[in-house]
């Protein structure tokens, strides 16, 4: 009997055949010696292969994956759907902050208004002013932006206070450069959101910087920028203005970090 295809033999091995088809294969195997040889191909490559890869079934799930499921803030920030392209920040930013600030709150710190009137940008944490007036990320912040993956938090001493810097996500610009949205928070629960873009000279130019005021929750878990600091320079507007395409995936971001933030030669 020669009408037994590879597919049928395979289905036989996998237990996918019903009565009559099964009988046909068995008849073939009983009558044609080379049938068993053909069968062996599929027996050797069947569901038994799964035991080779079952280490994940035997060990605990790594913490970073549990974090990925349970930490909505960063996760939502990585949305690179079309919806995200239209409005990359609106839904992600408040959520990201809410989670971050909740962590701070859990530490027992009392919140206080971050950047009240009179505070100038050049006084703000992690920002320095170049001789030509440009606002640049300070050395510690730049070092985190250069190397840290989005969603990770790095502790640093800035202006002799301990601060935490957390890139939220990375995106490409129309001019083939890259920008990152990040958060920086101080021990006293002062928190800022910012967007910085990598300049050809290697510095991170601050495109937007705003104080985040945890007392002005607009809804459960939502946090509005402190009054007076939003506006033309708000983080949301800056991202809308700069972003080209979607927020980078973690993998694409890692590739960009590894090649030292060089401009794209092609689309990621």
């Amino acid at each position: 009997m020669s009408g037994i295809s590879d597919e049928m033999l395979m289905a036989y091995v996998d237990g996918e055949l019903d009565g009559s088809a099964r009988t046909a294969v068995e008849t073939y195997l009983a009558s044609v010696p080379e049938g068993v040889e053909r069968l062996r191909v599929f027996e050797a490559t069947g569901r038994g292969l799964s035991s080779l890869f079952d280490q994940p079934m035997r060990e605990p799930v790594p913490q970073r994956l549990l974090d990925a499921v349970n930490a909505p803030a960063d996760v939502v920030a990585f949305d690179r759907s079309k919806r995200a392209r239209q409005r990359p920040i609106a839904m992600t930013w408040p959520t990201a902050l809410a989670a971050s600030l909740t962590i701070l709150a859990a530490g027992g710190s009392a919140y206080w208004l971050a950047s009240q009137s009179g505070s100038k940008l050049e006084d703000n944490l992690g920002v320095e002013i170049a001789s030509n007036g440009d606002r640049l990320a300070s050395r510690q912040v730049a070092s985190v932006l250069d190397t840290a993956a989005s969603g990770t938090t790095t502790a640093a001493m800035i202006d002799s206070q301990s601060a935490r810097i957390k890139p939220v996500y990375t995106f490409a610009t129309a001019s083939s450069g890259f920008c990152r949205q990040f958060m920086i928070s101080a021990q006293d629960a002062t928190a800022f959101g910012s967007v910085a873009c990598k300049s050809p000279d290697g510095r991170w130019r601050i495109e937007a910087y705003e104080a985040l005021d945890p007392n002005r929750s607009t809804a459960a878990g939502k946090i509005a920028p402190a009054s007076g600091t939003a506006g033309p320079n708000s983080v949301e507007d800056a991202v809308d203005r700069l972003i080209d395409g979607d927020v980078l995936s973690l993998e694409a971001e890692r590739a960009v970090i590894e090649r030292g933030w060089q401009a794209r030669s092609d689309r990621e």
Partner: peptide, 16 residues
């Protein structure tokens, strides 16, 4: 690499 893929999968799933 598997964990990278799973992590990205979870991120995209939650975002969508």
């Amino acid at each position: 690499k598997a964990d990278d893929l799973v992590q990205d999968t979870c991120a995209r799933a939650l975002a969508n």
